[in-house]
Design a protein around this nucleic acid. Structure first.
Lengths: 210, 210
DNA sequence: GTCTATAGGGGGATAGAC
DNA sequence: GTCTATCCCCCTATAGAC
């Protein structure tokens, strides 16, 4: 068993190589613009192998899409669900975490939004983020804060939109932003790092201004 | 000349019909997923006519893309550039205007961001939004406000990201938002209408909290 | 200008050898 | 399991009649 583990660690399995390549290419170009030949080349294997392992382009895509959405949104719901961290801390955690992951894989937010436009039900139905979120500890905490007058706006959806929007939108509008501000990649990343500290402060201000 | 005008008003020219159809389909599906047959059908004409008027799918797309980006971003720079409206009023104008246009054509924000990912230079170079914006009356007003202590955060890029993000992100994340909040289209639109009044207030709060 | 018919190429998928 | 070669459909673009 040691040797098997070693082997997979040193040189990952073909199936895994294809999945990694598929993630990369799909995330960059989206489903429609991706050719299975691109994925095969990226993986350093032959086109036939892709169909041998995953049957079809569509099957492979659905796999990658589900994993990507689950990975990205899943972390979010975990943070929202924890009853022990107060609202303010939740925001700081979310902002910090999502700016880091978005810096690491900047194509993911736009990828998810673009591909979700085509068949939203297909993927959202399989992932109960909606119900999970609206029945989470976050919602209770939010309602308490409204009742205690610490938050003015009673609808938590506005709050969610604001937090996620402030964090993620710069990554979606990145080409425009870099053009407007004449930013290279490093300067862009510095700006995002700044926002880790700024956004929680802004959210605090928004809460009291609803 | 009267008759010619009348004719075009009653029943628009074939060229125009194709362009309108191309806008619709491209905006919904993006370049890669759009088939010229879809456009022809949407326009109620034959496929050959599309090539007769526009030479190729790519030429037609670039035309639509440029018009769309120019139309969407152009209105923004005009508002930013006006030296007579103070900063606070600019925000209110922008928010009001862009929520209305995004409600009217909700696919445009995501369309622009998605297609810009492929070849950002191709389109952004042709539209001097960057230089126009960074040398506009808005920038001067912003710096004044910073100098007078009315705004804490010195970098106007954060301000721009925040305003645009708060306005546009809900339209980009629409499927997720509607899923999370169990919203039908009417409820979604009501939420956006609410934000016309809320966002300017929030921006005021953010200014003083940087 | 508008149509029908078709050429031509690209890309997903498979057959079959190794 | 992995490769080469190839099938075949779909989609863009054009030829040519009207």
């Amino acid at each position: 068993m040691t040797s098997r583990k070693k082997k997979e660690a040193l040189d990952t399995s073909t199936e895994e190589k294809i999945k990694v390549a598929a993630r990369t290419v799909f995330h960059q170009k989206g489903f429609a613009a991706t050719r299975t030949r691109d994925i095969a080349e990226e993986a350093g294997i032959n086109l036939a192998l892709l169909n041998y392992y995953f049957r079809s382009k569509e099957k492979l895509f659905k796999l990658i899409m589900l994993e990507t959405v689950a990975g990205f949104m899943g972390g979010m719901t975990i943070v929202f669900n924890d009853p022990d961290t107060p609202l303010e801390e939740k925001v700081a955690l979310l902002v910090d975490r999502y700016i880091d992951t978005a810096i690491a894989e900047p194509e993911i937010p736009l990828f998810i939004m673009s591909e979700l436009r085509n068949n939203p039900h297909e993927f959202l139905e399989k992932l109960p983020i909606g119900k999970m979120l609206m029945h989470s500890a976050f919602i209770r905490q939010y309602q308490e804060a409204v009742a205690e007058g610490r938050i003015v706006e009673p609808n938590p959806l506005h709050f969610i939109m604001n937090v996620i929007g402030l964090v993620i939108f710069p990554f979606i509008g990145r080409p425009i932003l870099q053009n407007v501000g004449s930013l290279n990649n490093q300067e862009f990343e510095q700006l995002m790092q700044q926002r880790k500290k700024l956004i929680p402060v802004w959210i605090q201000a928004i809460m009291k201004a609803g």
